[in-house]
Amino acid sequence: MLSYLIKRILLLAPVFLAVSAVIFLILHLIPGDPVDNLLKVGSSASKRAEIEARYGLDRPLIVQYGMWLGNVLQGDLGTSIVTRRPVSQLIGQTLPHSLQLGGLALLLSSVVGILLGVVAARARDRWPDRLVMGGVLLGSTLPSFWIGLILILVFSVQLGWFPVSGARGWSSLVLPVITIGLGGIALVARVTRVAMIDTAGRDFVLLLHAKGLPPSRILWRHVLRHAMIPVVTILALRIGWILGGAVTVEYVFARPGIGTTLIKALNQHDYPVVQACLLMLAIAVMLGTLLGDIIQALMDPRVREAIA
């Protein structure tokens, strides 16, 4: 297992290299010259050259990429062109908010999603199942920004229960977490239901029933445990997807976070900030994939052998 782990982690290196190169290159396609932001009207060409040199914008692309990657690996994400502050400081301020939001949404999705999935599987094709699956369909098809707006309308404007925006205490987390969570709940409930139904029909479960174990014990101890493999795998693989949803939701609730920072920086053509945000999201996606693969390997020896 250890050697598999090491191999799998080593495999991340080329992927990281590729991702970082793509992130770096794509941003140089965005129109708009960030240097204009820094120049006073009517500045001389030499002042322009000086600023370009300061930010390394005058070097060949490949050199800029090398410099950037080298700095990134040392934890230096560069300086924001618009605010002239270290990007790592900005990320340090906003990332915790996103992690908090994403983590809670993930927690909510798994707890509620698994519960609903089990309920639906047990009541297969009866009304609780249909109800849950109907809810799942809605949860996965409603645009998250719209859900967010409706929640604000009902719970903040009409009822005044929760603050409208910002990140001030736990009460401002409730609505955004629910908004992101709805999509996650739908996904987890669907996968859990299928996995439960699948597992319930397996030989070992039939054997347990034949042995005369109480059905509830079989359900909660054996079937659920087995059914969790695909659920956990999907959750891990979809971490990026949940963070992506957070981009929109952070915007709707005007919460500080990687998403709002990214959107603002994209609009301002602030390359270093955009790069850093994308990099953070990419790392989250890669770690999620790694986690998913490891869980799968832990459960399924064949994958381990194929790699080894």
Partner: peptide, 18 residues
């Protein structure tokens, strides 16, 4: 001083006492 770029959000914050 808080910065709230969206007008509607800012107004709702005032209305709700935030």
């Amino acid at each position: 001083f808080r910065e709230i770029p969206e007008d509607s959000t800012a107004f709702l914050e005032l209305k709700s006492g935030g």
